[in-house]
């Protein structure tokens, strides 16, 4: 720790650096993006991705993986565009019930010792089916308050950036500063010692999954606020994007090592990478590959960094 940074802060260096580099590259390619209006256009679709990434991060904090998040966000989007607008009470109840189911899944996975990947993959079909039932044909309309929230023009900074900062701070307070957050990360780090210390693992896992459900619901609502109406397949891409976002932001698959601020930065980076490639006019055949290359470069940088860190830690 010669740099005088905590390991949490070190974890953020690479994500922050890669985001800055990409942002600079985007500004260089497209100077028009360097404005209030431009930044909002560039980043507003990153807001629901950031929320979904935080949800994924909470599940990953307890060493699980959620493959249903894309379908769940789509489902929430469909509820938001139908019930939450026409019958706010029913809509709220449905969403609360969905969060409850999320917590329940966390408990079932732990109690029956099931692989989370399989359970959540199964749940993804359930959510997708429910979404189609709710909205057989694309349509619906965003509630006015949601639309207002996502198109509001705050002074100084565009909505996308204000929202990202708020999400990062809230998630940071919950995961890094609250005792519940410590417990959730503890379960991911060493479940047995947390158990021996007298904590309820069931409660911790239920809380982690429930919180993930809350953030995923927020992601769905935010997404409909941006698109104005829903589609049962609207967010299927979010499953992999959210996992990539967590990893890009300095999180790890095991050990309860996660970073909420990093996760938000990871989500922004992924969005910027897409715009960067589109401004570069890379042919679509190469775009997925190029996106993968950006991911691999960032991860390789992190490995190098980790090694340097380790060497420093040793006397």
């Amino acid at each position: 720790m010669k740099l005088g940074l905590t390991s949490d802060a070190m974890r953020l260096v690479i994500p922050a650096l890669s985001m800055t580099v990409l942002l600079a590259a985007v500004f260089w390619l497209q100077p028009r993006a360097m404005s209030y209006f431009g930044l909002n256009l560039l980043l507003n679709l990153a807001v629901p991705i950031a929320l979904a990434t935080i949800a994924q991060m909470l599940v990953m904090a307890v060493n699980d993986l959620d493959l249903s998040i894309g379908a769940f966000v789509s489902f929430v989007a469909c509820v938001t565009a139908t019930f939450l607008r026409d019958a706010p009470l029913v809509g709220t109840l449905i969403l609360a019930g969905a969060v409850g189911i999320y917590a329940l899944i966390g408990v079932v996975i732990y109690l029956r010792n099931l692989p989370s990947i399989v359970v959540t993959l199964g749940m993804s079909f359930v959510w997708a089916g429910l979404a189609v039932l709710m909205l057989p044909a694309p349509g619906g309309q965003a509630p006015d308050w949601v639309r207002w929230l996502m198109t509001v023009k705050p002074p100084l900074m565009p909505m996308a950036i204000v929202a990202s900062i708020v999400i990062a701070i809230v998630a940071h307070l919950i995961v890094m500063r609250s005792s519940l957050g410590v417990l959730i990360r503890g379960v991911g780090g060493n479940q047995r010692s947390v158990e021996r210390a007298g904590w309820s693992i069931i409660a911790a896992r239920a809380a982690a999954y429930g919180l993930a459900g809350v953030f995923a619901v927020a992601a769905g609502i935010a997404l409909v606020g941006l698109t104005t109406s829903a589609d049962a397949n609207i967010a299927l891409r979010y499953t992999l994007l959210s996992i990539a976002g967590v990893i890009l932001g300095g999180g790890e698959f095991t050990g309860g090592r996660v970073s909420p601020i990093g996760a938000v930065i990871g989500a922004l980076t992924l969005t910027l990478a897409g715009s960067f490639l589109s401004f570069l006019r890379i042919s679509p055949d190469w775009q997925i590959g190029a996106q993968g290359a950006i991911l691999i470069i960032v991860l390789a940088l992190r490995l190098v960094f980790n090694r340097v860190e380790k060497r420093r830690a040793q006397p």
Partner: peptide, 22 residues
Amino acid sequence: FTTAENQATEQAAQIQNMILQG
């Protein structure tokens, strides 16, 4: 421009990029 993954969110981002591109 063609999106790589046939996903609405990706295409929405693409359209917003086009606005920026003028």
